[in-house]
Design a protein around this nucleic acid. Sequence first.
DNA 1: CGTAGGGTTGATTCTTGTCAAACTCTGTGG
DNA 2: CCACAGAGTTTGACAAGAATCAACCCTACG
Lengths: 252, 252
Amino acid sequence: MPLSTVDRSVLEPVIRRLSALRPLSTEARASLEYAMLEGLQRVGSGEDLISEGDPVDSVRVVLSGWLCRYKTLEDGRRQIVNFIFPGESCDAHAFLLPVMDHSIATVTPVIYSEIKRARFESLLAGERSLAEAFWCETLVNIAIQREWAINLGRRVAVERVAHLFCETFERLRAVGMVDGNSCVMPVTQMDLADATGLSIVHLNRTLQELRAAGLIILRERMLTIPDLDALKNAALYSPSYLQLYRRAEATR
Amino acid sequence: MPLSTVDRSVLEPVIRRLSALRPLSTEARASLEYAMLEGLQRVGSGEDLISEGDPVDSVRVVLSGWLCRYKTLEDGRRQIVNFIFPGESCDAHAFLLPVMDHSIATVTPVIYSEIKRARFESLLAGERSLAEAFWCETLVNIAIQREWAINLGRRVAVERVAHLFCETFERLRAVGMVDGNSCVMPVTQMDLADATGLSIVHLNRTLQELRAAGLIILRERMLTIPDLDALKNAALYSPSYLQLYRRAEATR
DNA sequence: CGTAGGGTTGATTCTTGTCAAACTCTGTGG
DNA sequence: CCACAGAGTTTGACAAGAATCAACCCTACG
């Protein structure tokens, strides 16, 4: 176990995120931390953690790195339907359904903690606040998924990409992973194209448009947003669907 | 209470749908039916049941009629992010979040049952199978939402509309509301356009294309699908995300 | 030095949106 | 009974947005 001696601070994003959704008692936090430390795992980038059609029997909680949920069509067209950031979980409760309806892949190297279904269920049974926090996470996921629907269905390319950047920045900020007005953006343009429903060529041109307008600086896998309000404006961004993250800031 | 003497058979779609997700004990079924009969409501078509930003304090279960969830942008662009069919609930558990991130409107006259939060929670606390069934419904909703993301992001117009028809038909079939290869389609072309992310003019032409190909017959608010497999083929439809409905058929 | 992955560019085609008008159907009031 | 209004659907002409194809560049890396 190369990770057995890891610093407990790697768990911070998870605690931070769940606390933003529901206040956690000291005991709840302790028992979750204990469970997480037991199941630490590492995986490289570009790997499928789980594929469409697979049954699920555990919960994975992301400690560092990015993942994406995606679906594909027979002919290879791919849509990233969401990203998964540190502090978030892959499919808490997914084991309630027989099999996965989508796949999850790493986009960077990832450290996560795997908690077996039985362990997870007894954890939640013992701590109501934990159970509610994980369910809230799932509810926020639906809200994000709905926002992606209007993003893909009704925003034009520039708005779409701008919106993705706004959302990503705010979600990362909620778990303390932004630095001033910059954050990492460790994805290829192909990934961005698949997340925004654009072709890679058109995505590239859209990025240039955003750069030319001074709305973003994107190089070497770092995103800087000189004026977040201006970018939100260009994106027609309204963050109510991430309300919980804002509550997190309020209580911090 | 014009509905107080209503036939209990109006509750059938709900029982049918929840049973498909989790086997319900006789007692679970009885207590749910009792709670539903208490809160029956009627509402006309084209009404907002609840709007983005509103707090939620009850669960509504649809007995008859169609609703849609939608979001809008400042400039009026609208995206229907999902339909809600008989047997389904509006936001079980939505009260766990502070406010709604989207709106829900009726697209036809609707009969539903409203269950107050406290009542609903005690119902679920008393019947584990009910709690699991409602949570499964929420999980299936996320799966549907993800499928809508790839629909909007990666399918072209004809595939998109065909996919919507396939999904609608199968979801209605799961609650016993199709007749042979026909079902109601009580929506305007504007609604279909908003659901598929197309302009109304282009949607109209896409419908004509589907009609010309013999894939659908759509008139007087009735949809007939002469050859469902052919339509699925045109839609690149893969129903795994609705797996639970299929399980429903298997156990019927 | 060669290669592969990622990024960028130009030219072109195709898909979809926009605008404007007409048509159908239904219900309503004169 | 007819005129009219309004919502919904359909059509044509045109414009804009996005995809596709084919190169080419750059850099990291073996």
